[in-house]
Design a protein around this nucleic acid. Structure first.
Length: 583
RNA sequence: GCACCCGUAGUUCAAUUGGAUAGAAUGUCAGAUUCCGGUUCUGAUGGUUGGGGGUUCGAAUCCCUUCGGGUGCACCA
């Protein structure tokens, strides 16, 4: 039994014995004792004063006395105002350590047989990934790992936006100005090559607008009538009509782009179980519109367009099918939801998408609920804020985006530079050193982007992001490395297991023992220096641990670095996200 | 105009989801270290939680109001 429930049971018993009051265990809340007081667990008595018919302080004292006399797990207690602080006896902790050591994969929950599908990344095939995608990818990847550690069977999917007018724009510009350039001939990654022509299109487009305006046309009109735009629109129609030439070019360019994306994902350490392509899903959902009409969820207007009325839920009426029978964005998403459910039979489905689509997903989920989809309750939109630069918003057209590949490379270079300055790679061969730089550089970037509450905007400071001092991943990684070396020293002293460390205390300094107690609880496999320095995963462990083994928190204050490490874990990703998805 | 999100030390972010004296990092200042105006260490400084009401034993957190910032209100995706 874990310590929390043991204490809660004892408290419930104490209530009955001292105040003759029934208090269910589920109603009892415990929290961590603040550093400045003695104890590990704190019971807040204010809410129960009514039950005990004493003032909060008196209530705490009486309960404390009872626990001390009747419960062996309680070593001492103190009452400050309405806070009953409980100190547990050493045997409780020793038993706990033994239990931890006997538990393989401690901290990873056993499989629950529940499936979750996490969809993220969602790139467009007309340009390379940028900083915003990095936040998306890291969030999606992290939440996947958190859910995995919580016993879910996790699948990761990527819905690629590979069709539409914006794709045709880069294709058209390539046709006009490409001269048969290829990734090989240009030494450019495929996604960067496509992006180059997307930018080119925009430049030409602007030029043509200017010319038209100079010729006396209204600006609004010129935007719609620029020849290059009309040509792109014509190209989209050809694409939809399956024109062989257009399709061939589309396949060729997208192929280049996918090669480029794969390289980027490889650097990030992310892979997907399933790719969905909008070119294959954009016509889905029309049958659902029929179904909705039959069920009376949707209604038809005089012009033949189909709508859903969500005013009873505080939303508006929303179009789901145009009068000409073609579908819109939400139609496609309804169809894709069914498709994904058919493929995965998930219990939960998470969409990692920016907060500008909050309303869209509210509507989508609501519609699916009205349609009676069994999976509708398991849908969750993991919404996140934009990434801002000190200079303002990122705009691809104005060239103010931070390219994902460039940024990652810069992080690796900085890691290499720092490490070599410190002379830490002596005796490393090249591949080992490279791997070290990857862990350091990418860890720093992940941490930087994940430490902020997902729903808040991030202000991306380039200088600060490559900083390795202060509240950064490398600093925490360093702390872990230090802990490991103390453990090694314990081993050299002939202490084989952590349990022995705890019981053979005379070999080590008191501070070291406390430190080892702390870290023996963080299984080395989730270690910060592990393959994925993923703060989100660590945050989840730390959260679980914090709840059950509060004592470590007080011990942590021994070393300042330890404090930082724990703090880092706690804040790395707001646990709220994981919890919300759970519920 | 309507809807949603955000507002916390100079700055970037936390705060166990309603708990105790709101914490870290960074910056600034002072001291130590030293081939250095650099690095590293120690300490100090720093807050009316945007403002105003309310709810209760207790509010950064919940409610109302007001002011700032952002996003969405397409028969685009």
């Amino acid at each position: 039994m874990n310590i929390d429930s043991l204490l809660k049971k004892s408290l419930s018993e104490a209530f009955k014995a001292t105040f003759d009051a029934e208090l269910d265990i589920s109603e009892i809340g415990l929290q961590e004792t603040r550093k400045e007081f003695v104890g590990s667990h704190t019971f807040v008595t204010f809410p129960y004063a009514r039950l005990s018919k004493k003032n909060p302080e008196e209530t705490g004292r009486i309960l404390g006395e009872y626990l001390l006399q009747h419960k062996s797990e309680v070593k001492s207690f103190n009452v400050v105002k309405g806070f009953l602080n409980i100190e547990l006896s050493d045997i409780v902790w020793l038993n706990l350590f033994a239990e931890i050591l006997d538990t393989p994969n401690f901290g990873i929950h056993p499989p629950t047989n529940k499936k979750v599908l996490v969809e993220f990344s969602s790139p467009n095939t007309n340009k390379p990934l940028h900083l915003g995608h990095l936040r998306n990818n890291f969030l999606g990847h992290s939440i996947s790992q958190i859910l995995g550690a919580n016993g879910y069977d996790v699948s990761m999917s990527n819905l690629v936006n590979d069709r539409g007018i914006h794709i045709c724009k880069s294709m058209l510009a390539y046709l006009r100005y490409g001269n048969g350039e290829t990734p090989e001939s240009s030494q450019l990654k495929g996604d960067h090559l496509a992006g180059k022509y997307y930018v080119k299109f925009d430049q030409e487009y602007k030029k043509e607008i200017e010319e038209l305006v100079a010729g006396g046309m209204e600006a609004e009109q010129a935007k719609k009538k620029a020849p290059i735009l009309l040509e792109a629109q014509a190209m989209l129609q050809k694409w939809e009509a399956n024109d062989p030439e257009v399709i061939a070019l589309w396949k060729q360019m997208n192929g280049w782009v996918y090669d480029g994306f794969n390289q980027s994902y490889e650097t990030m350490g992310i892979h997907f179980d399933k790719y969905y392509y909008e070119s294959e899903t954009y016509l889905l959902g029309k049958d659902i519109v029929e179904e909705g009409l039959e069920k009376g969820v949707f209604f038809k207007k005089d012009d033949g367009s189909v709508w859903v009325d969500l005013t009873d839920e505080g939303m508006d009426e929303k179009l789901v099918l145009r009068a000409d029978g073609t579908s819109v964005y939400i139609t496609q998403d309804m169809g894709t939801a069914d498709l994904k459910y058919g493929d995965f039979k998930f219990d939960k489905s998470v969409y990692v998408v920016g907060n500008e689509q909050d309303y869209h997903f509210k509507v989508l989920f609501s519609i699916l609920k009205k349609l009676g989809r069994s999976y509708a309750d398991g849908l969750y939109h993991l919404s996140y804020g934009m990434v801002d630069l000190p200079s303002g918003k990122m705009k691809s057209r104005e060239g103010t985006v931070v390219d994902a590949d460039d940024l990652m490379q810069e992080m690796l270079d900085t890691a290499e530079q720092h490490t070599q300055e410190l002379g830490k790679v002596e005796g490393f061969d090249e591949t080992e050193a490279k791997e070290l730089y990857r862990k350091l550089g990418l860890g720093a970037l992940k941490f930087y982007l994940l430490r902020v509450d997902p729903k808040k905007r991030i202000l991306f400071n380039p200088q600060e992001s490559v900083e390795f001092q202060g509240f950064t991943a490398p600093f925490i990684q360093y702390t872990f490395a230090r802990i490991s070396s103390i453990l090694r020293r314990a081993k050299q002293l002939g202490i084989e297991t952590n349990a022995e460390v705890v019981t053979n205390q005379q070999h080590l300094a008191a501070e070291e023992i406390d430190l080892i107690k702390v870290i023996s609880d963080y299984p080395s496999k989730i270690a910060l220096a592990g393959d994925n320095m993923d703060p989100a995963v660590i945050a989840q462990y730390a959260y679980d641990l914090a709840k059950e083994y509060n004592r470590f928190y007080t011990v942590h204050s021994i070393f300042k670095e330890e404090d930082n490490a724990v703090m880092a874990m706690r804040v790395a990703l707001s646990q709220q996200v994981a919890k919300t998805i759970e519920n």
